[in-house]
Amino acid sequence: MAGVVGMENNQLKNQIRRLRFDNGEMTQQQLADLVGVTRQTILAIEAGNYSPSLTLAFKIANAFKVPLETVFQYEGKISG
């Protein structure tokens, strides 16, 4: 049931785990402190159980000093 908040259709992939290890094996707590959220939130985002807000997504990308699309990739269909 952890996936019911903000991510019913898990089409948003992320590279947070890889980026953490590429950045001196940063821990989830260190990343959480950098972006101002709890470690559980980072864990939920990494596991694809929670879609972060746009602000938080930018903060995470800034923490790794990479563009947003390097951290998050949308893999669903774009309708319209």
Binding site: V5, G6, A32, D33, G36, V37, T38, P52, S53
Partner: peptide, 15 residues
């Protein structure tokens, strides 16, 4: 000193 409440907690509480 440590963040104990964030946007995910807020969303869970709201729901």
């Amino acid at each position: 000193k440590q963040v104990t409440y964030d946007e995910r907690d807020r969303l869970i509480e709201k729901r």
